[in-house]
């Protein structure tokens, strides 16, 4: 989910890695041992993890924007507080994940710069605008729902700091989806205008949410190494199917229609079948062609630039204090 456009097909690119060391490393992974920061690891394992963890962190940070867009307009005090808390949690998750990536030898500032220049990506679901209050509900219900499906297996990822960060994230995440679904429920059971608002949001967020899990397994040849190293624990399609099977009954309870004419229950497989997905459009958005790509990064850049003098001041003050302490000794 956080590896869109990054992992190249083929084997590890750490050509210098000793075959014995690689074999011993794989044996540790197979035995469900956790790899910790100081441990030997193949160069490709380190590189893949840095990219995946940092892109996961970037997704949390950029993800603050679509919902943050509605904090000043949240329609009740309870919703306002819950939304601030949710977006705050997302910032916190980004922070835990940056910290986990830093254990692999990359500084947070470097990762932030990669996001701003476009060298690193974030989950493309955040390239869509939140047009109405119902979008806040849809994001909590569908986008957080999809993220949770992906995050729970990551709690058992082979790399210790990432797994531990994910355990913390999963504990905090539980209210996010429930909050979104509660918003949708209030709208779906509300006035005709509210119900129409909810349906409209579902119409726009359903397909992008389903595509959050990434391209079909048949197109994801690069997954094999990530699976072997227990960075990725389930395939895109299996997670996607799990999400669809869980979500369709939730939509039915709301009395809302999922915008897929080909969606139907398959009694033979015991799963829901869906219609074709437009992966060309997906890649177009990932590569910059979505409605909000430019603005999401521009907002991050502005926050970064506007905060430069503050960070510089904090550092300058600390240096002054250190100098005064030394002079006093």
């Amino acid at each position: 989910m956080y590896s869109q456009g990054l992992i190249r097909p083929g084997g590890p690119d750490g050509g210098e890695d000793d075959a014995d060391a690689l074999a011993r490393f794989q044996a540790r992974i197979d035995a469900e041992e956790k790899i910790e920061p100081g441990d030997w690891m193949p160069a490709a394992y380190r590189k893949t993890l840095i990219r995946q963890i940092s892109q996961h962190a970037h997704s949390e940070i950029v993800g603050m924007q679509p919902e943050g867009n509605w904090i000043t307009r949240a329609p009740t005090l309870r919703r306002k507080a819950a939304l601030i808390a949710k977006v705050q949690d997302e910032g916190g998750h980004g922070l835990y994940l940056y910290a986990a990536a830093e254990t692999l030898g990359i500084a947070r500032e470097e990762m932030e710069e990669q996001l701003l220049t476009g060298a690193a990506k974030y989950s493309s679901i955040f390239n869509y605008p939140t047009l109405t209050w119902a979008d806040v509900g849809a994001i909590g219900w569908l986008v957080d729902g999809a993220a949770i499906m992906n995050q729970i297996p990551l709690c058992r990822c082979s790399f210790g700091p990432y797994a531990r960060a994910m355990i913390r994230v999963c504990k905090e995440e539980s209210f996010h989806q429930r909050q979104g679904y509660e918003v949708m429920t209030a709208l779906a059971k509300g006035s005709p205008a509210q119900k129409a608002m909810a349906q409209d949001a579902l119409d726009r967020w359903w397909t992008p949410s389903v595509m959050m899990f990434g391209p079909p397994d048949s197109d994801s040849t690069h997954s094999d190494q990530s699976m072997a190293w227990k960075i990725k624990r389930f395939t895109n399609d299996s997670l996607r199917q799990r999400f669809i099977d869980a979500t369709v009954p939730q939509a039915e309870y709301l009395g809302l229609r999922i915008p897929d004419p080909d969606l139907r229950w398959n009694a033979e497989t015991g799963h829901y079948d869906i219609g074709p997905l437009d992966w060309d459009d997906f890649w177009r958005v990932v590569k910059g062609g979505g409605p909000m790509n430019r603005q999401r990064i521009a907002n991050r850049r502005r926050a970064h630039d506007d905060g430069q003098w503050v960070r510089a001041a904090a550092a300058a003050h600390a240096a002054k204090r250190a100098a005064r302490r030394e002079a006093a000794e």
Binding site: A99, E102, A107, E109, R301, Q308, R311, A312, A314, A315
Partner: peptide
């Protein structure tokens, strides 16, 4: 715009 070259990074705790 990147961080000014002489801005020290805020340390990790």
């Amino acid at each position: 715009m990147t961080e000014a070259p002489n801005t020290p990074r805020l340390p990790l705790w």
